[in-house]
Design a protein around this nucleic acid. Structure first.
Lengths: 329, 329
DNA sequence: CTGAAAGCGCTTACAG
DNA sequence: CTGAAAGCGCTTACAG
């Protein structure tokens, strides 16, 4: 039979309350007592009953992962990270797909979470944020626009995009196109900013006709490349806001009979599986998504335990050089 | 403040126990009483406290989704379906990645689920199944090898594969290659069986040299196509066990300078996003994965409530004809 | 630094 | 067909 807190208390020769104190890392337990209790927990292989904790403590020990419509690859990596961090702290993960911003209130019907992890673009949705504030729910963000007021994790998208474009310039490209990400995503703004910054550094003009809108989709790349490559003076390189978009660019290039990288250089962002599978393989930027999610979740748990704790942490990205980038023709 | 069962009881003029009966769909409640209670629940917007139910009932109302390493696209579709079904029945979803079959016991450390949904190939892993039986945990399967003894949902993979190959034969192909799926997956056996069956029906010989092993991966397609297209008498069509594999075939074909479908016809299976994004778009088979997951979860919940309930349901697939298949050269 | 009592919101026997 | 009591395994005040 499963050991209960009472069994541990008897085995350690203390009261239930003391076991509870040790279990929850509370202060005011003598070191010797603590050791006797942990030994008893160990020996009995004690695991607190989650339901009893929740009921008595009036807390759920649940963390909601709220997401709307990011790529599946991204989301699965996030899930892995959140799961790892929440389990290590005896929290449970509840998945909450959010189809409309108003759905955010649904969360509080299905569950009574102690906190939430948000993925972009929910991180920057005023309706979502307002709802969380109203419910006074602690939350943590992956790559939010606002890095000052939030806790969570992010990479320096601006610097990453800048390096990519600087590399293109170093290979002699003078007309470098950019297909933007979806509006409302921080990643759109940062990657565009990195693009502009790199141009300025190498003394290239910022030509608005070389920048087209997009949605982070394959189709964005197809359409964007048609526009860019149909210009009187088409670019010799295209920096796509993500790998899916870059894959679309490759498709259009193939349709137009352009060889990559001989006639056109292309780079993406994210290093999703398609980046290494497509022909030619994409030069891109790798984000440690699982690690970011893990860190953001740990920050959240810190904040749940102490409203003043938790921080916004920057993690490192990595440039992945493959075959889709070459010297300017 | 949140309504409790006691509040509902007072409002309806009955005891807590009667409210509990109505809530759990138990028998022996007079119709008039039932109506008064449901009206009171409605009016107070009553939601039972999950933790209290779990603690008192000694059940978790949790359903584990156990998965090891299927494709992310597949898994996200499964998650969507399981989530929909479990929520509609007031069950919670707990994700359980299983890296090694022995990890299955971990499930019972982190949670005390009322049931489990299994994805392939866990569905056919003797170690996993034995552990579930030992813990006497009800479980439901997606596309298990054994359709007789299990409950869950499946499509007729054999028939789907057969149609694909029959279509190739109808277009004049006489040498049709097959790159198999991973060992231990029912899908491997069924798709191979459908391939063989179609050949037999149209009077083509089964040539072992035209069938190569694979792992459902992009790389399987690259390697498999190199082998097949390097034969003295190479096939004019290749049926890949899934879309990722087919994408690999397309890559190798491009490297060898073969045009698809002019020089080589290719078809996949699953209709993942890559199938419509790759050039040329893949002829393939669409499985309603989300719907299958929803059905399998409902069957599981039936079985949780009654050990004799629950069934194995067949759902329909759909042939998707795109551009990767054409007449034999 | 430690403990005895009450209570979280339900369900489970049991009684009628 | 319905209800009063006990109990699920913890935590929260409160007391010492």
């Amino acid at each position: 039979m499963r050991a209960r807190i009472e069994d541990v208390a008897v085995a350690a020769g203390v009261s239930m309350k003391t076991v509870s104190r040790v279990m929850n890392g509370e202060a005011n337990v003598r070191e010797g007592t603590r050791l006797r209790v942990t030994a008893a927990m160990e020996k009995l292989n004690y695991r607190p009953d989650p339901s009893a904790r929740r009921l008595a403590g009036q807390r759920s020990y649940e963390i909601v992962l709220a997401y709307n419509n990011p790529s599946r690859n991204y989301l699965m990596d996030v899930v892995t990270g959140v799961l790892a961090a929440s389990r290590s702290c005896h929290y449970n993960l509840v998945l909450s797909p959010i189809s409309s911003p108003r759905d955010i209130d649904e969360i509080f019907v299905h569950a009574h979470p102690d906190g939430a992890v948000l993925t972009p673009p929910l991180t920057d949705d005023p309706v979502v944020i307002a709802a969380l504030e109203r419910h006074q729910l602690p939350y943590s963000c992956l790559s939010p626009l606002d890095r000052i007021a939030r806790i969570g994790a992010y990479i320096d998208d601006v610097a990453a995009a800048r390096s990519l474009v600087l590399e293109l310039a170093a290979l002699g490209h003078r007309r470098i196109g950019h297909i933007c990400g979806a509006k409302g995503h921080g990643a759109r703004e940062w990657r565009l900013a990195g693009y502009k910054q790199a141009l300025k550094e190498v003394g290239l003009p910022y030509d608005r006709s070389l920048v087209v809108s997009g949605e982070f989709l394959f189709e964005s790349g197809v359409d964007g490349a048609r526009t860019l490559l149909g210009l009187k003076q088409p670019p010799t390189a295209i920096f796509a806001a993500n790998d899916d978009t870059a894959a679309g660019v490759l498709r259009t290039a193939a349709e137009l009979g352009l060889r990559v990288p001989h006639d056109l250089s292309v780079c993406g962002f994210d290093d999703t599986p398609v980046a290494s599978q497509i022909l030619p393989a994409l030069t891109t930027v790798q984000q440690p998504i699982t690690e970011m999610a893990r860190i953001a979740t740990l920050q959240l748990i810190d904040r749940i335990r102490d409203p003043k704790a938790g921080a916004m942490e920057q993690v490192d990205y990595r440039l992945i050089q493959r075959e889709s980038v070459g010297p300017a023709p």
